[in-house]
Amino acid sequence: MTRANTDRRPSRNSAQGRQIKDDSSKSGILRFFLGFLIPYLVINGLILFFVIQTPTITADEPDTKDYKSADVSFKVSSLIPMKSVTATIEGQEVPLEKNGSTYKCTLTNNGNLTVKAVAINQMTKSTYIQVNLLDEANPVIDEDSIVLGAGYLEFDVSDTQSGVNWDSIYGIDNLGNNVKPTDINQTTGRVTFSMAGDAITVYVKDLAGNEAQASFSVN
C-alpha cells in the first residue's frame, strides 16, 4: 500500500505542473496581444489613416441675379485640420469668405474656377468649376432682318443670356435728333424706328449693361 501511495503522488504533481505551465503560456500570449500587438496595430493604423487622409470638396452650381456677377459656394470636408483653401480663376486668386467649412466667392467674369484644399498632412484636393453664366456679350442685331427705307427702319434684336433691355433702345439720326422706337415687339424682338433724316445710328443694351450699336443709311 505504501508503494502504491508513492506512485500516485508524482502523477498528481506532474499534472499540476503541466497545468501551471499551460496557464502561464496562455497568459503570456494574451499579454503579448493585449499589451503589444493590438496597441501597435491600432496606433500605426491611426497614424496611417491621418497620413493619407485627403480633404473632399463639394461645390454648388454658380448662381447669378444680374448676370454681371456670380456667387460660387463650396464645402471642404476633412477629419483633420486644413492648412489652406484657395481659389483662382484663370490664374488670378479670388478672395474667399469662410463660414465654418463652407466657402463663398463672387466672380465678375466667366472662366474656369480652380479650388484647392491642403490639409496639415500635406494631402491636397483640387476641383474645377466652370463659370459661363455671366453675360459678357453684346446684344445681337440680326443683319438679315433689317428693312430700311425712306423714313423708317426695322430690325430684330436678341440676347440669349441676360435679355434685351428694351427701355434702353434709342437712335440718333444724321440731323442730331435723339429718336426712340415707334414700336417694339418683345415677343419677336422686332424694333421699328421712324427717321426724319436718311441715316441713323441705333444703340441697344442688354440687362447686364453690354451695348451694341449699328449705323444705317438710305442710299
Rank of each mutant, 00 (worst) to 15 (best):
R9M: 10
A15N: 10
G17V: 01
R18V: 07
D22R: 15
D23L: 08
S24Y: 02
K26W: 03
S27A: 14
G28I: 07
L34R: 14
F36V: 12
P39W: 13
Y40S: 12
V42H: 08
I43C: 09
G45W: 13
L48T: 14
F50S: 02
V51H: 11
V51P: 03
I52A: 07
I57W: 02
A59R: 04
D60H: 09
P62T: 05
Y67G: 09
A70F: 00
F74C: 01
F74S: 02
K75Y: 01
S77T: 12
M82L: 13
S84T: 09
T88Q: 12
Q92G: 04
V94F: 01
V94T: 08
L96S: 08
E97F: 09
E97S: 10
K98C: 02
G100I: 10
K104G: 06
C105W: 03
C105L: 08
C105A: 14
T106R: 15
L107F: 08
N110S: 12
L113M: 13
K116Q: 12
V118L: 12
V118K: 11
N121H: 14
N121M: 08
Q122V: 09
M123I: 07
T124K: 14
T124P: 11
L134Y: 02
D135C: 01
E136W: 00
S145M: 00
I146L: 01
G149H: 03
G151W: 04
F155E: 00
D156T: 07
D159Y: 00
N165M: 11
W166F: 13
S168V: 11
I169T: 07
G176W: 04
D183N: 15
D183T: 14
T188Y: 09
S194Y: 07
G197M: 09
V204A: 01
K205E: 13
D206S: 04
L207G: 04
A212R: 15
A212P: 06
